[in-house]
Design a protein around this nucleic acid. Structure first.
Lengths: 199, 199
DNA sequence: ATGTTACTATAACGATCGGTATGTTATTTG
DNA sequence: CAAATAACATACCGATCGTTATAGTAACAT
């Protein structure tokens, strides 16, 4: 009995999920959430609990709606197929929506309020500068014959940065050094070498 | 002329850098900064400008103090040496300090106030669960002979997660899909295969 | 010694944060 | 038609945020 809800909880949760995806947990304010959902604050509390609980529900929604490629991948025939399937769909998902790029899980910690945008740009620029230095070094390596003609210095530099970022995230999550060293070794296994090197 | 500073700006900047490293930009409050430096708020403003400028100086300090292995690496003979040197030192740096694990750049965006710790744990757990599923799948692959005996399912799963996290960070930074797809392809190049597969 | 300068320390500023008390309105139950 | 129930909207709560005004103090120049 009592009055009926005037909004659809599922639709609101979708909007909430998008906001958290774009701005992260800390960066999403209730002003953002009420604006995105069109639902007043107390109604959000009554429907989802506090902010932490709401984030949990958004996380579950993200898994349901966007991470269905994971079980798909796990059912494939070979481990390489599994890895390839996950990577392909992750790249696609992370670049599909211009308004919320990246992964919900990572952005949950990584993103922030719009006022912090200059800071993010500062860090992105610093990162890009490091990548540029490495790329230029690899271009030289290619010119010197250290890297084969088939190698792409830009991709190699980007790949190295990717692994570095991933390692940083996992270090923050508490991974042991030996584990991360094994990851680094794995990353180096694919490193291209010049065909003969005798010239 | 006028009164002298009663604190050492360089020492204070070191403390500031550690706070930003541990808590990120948004997560570091002036209360944290005054406590870590032992310097009152207006003195920090007079010495470093506002919070954004202070973060910029801390970033520069991080480069000077902790990223000296980058120019070292760039001077090495081969591209593989460059990559190996960077990876080795990055792993070491990211796991050296228990009070601020990970990379300053990534943590600058990724970390947050202590009150958000339950959220980070929620995301870390979700991430760990995904990794577990993949690892178990790879263990099966090894049992089935899809992966060679020399392969380590745990390392492979962790490596895959590392690349996924790195891709997520770079997608957030605005990388194009084609670029990230090339990175994913590079990651797959090192995938181990069973020796003969004919059994 | 005196005035000027630049620091220190306290305390306050407005804004925004997550969270709620409160009164109103709509719906169901008796 | 009441009485009860639950969602609605407004407005507010205390706390914390980054920032700064203000008053006191130490070191210089004259």
């Amino acid at each position: 009995m009592g009055r009926h809800r005037e909004f659809d909880v599922d639709t609101a949760l979708d909007a909430v999920t998008c906001v958290f995806w774009r701005k992260g947990y800390e960066g999403a304010s209730y002003s953002d959430l009420t604006e995105a959902t069109g639902v007043e604050r107390p109604a959000l509390y009554s429907a989802f609990g506090n902010k932490e609980a709401m984030f949990g529900k958004a996380l579950a929604r993200y898994y349901d709606r966007y991470l269905d490629y994971i079980p798909e991948a796990l059912a494939l025939a070979t481990s390489r197929d599994v890895a390839a399937h996950i990577l392909k769909h992750a790249v696609d998902l992370n670049t599909r929506f211009t308004e919320h790029r990246g992964c919900f899980l990572i952005n949950g910690m990584l993103a922030g309020p719009d006022t912090a945008e200059p800071i993010r740009q500062m860090l992105i620029d610093a990162r890009a500068d490091g990548e540029r230095q490495i790329r230029e070094r690899f271009e030289r390596a290619k010119a010197e014959g250290d890297l084969p003609e088939s190698a792409d210095p830009a991709t190699l530099a980007m790949f190295l940065m990717t692994v570095l970022h991933g390692i940083a995230v996992q270090a923050k999550a508490g991974f042991a050094r030996e584990a991360l060293a094994a990851v680094a070794a794995q990353a180096l296994l694919s490193w291209p070498t010049a065909p003969t090197r005798t010239s």
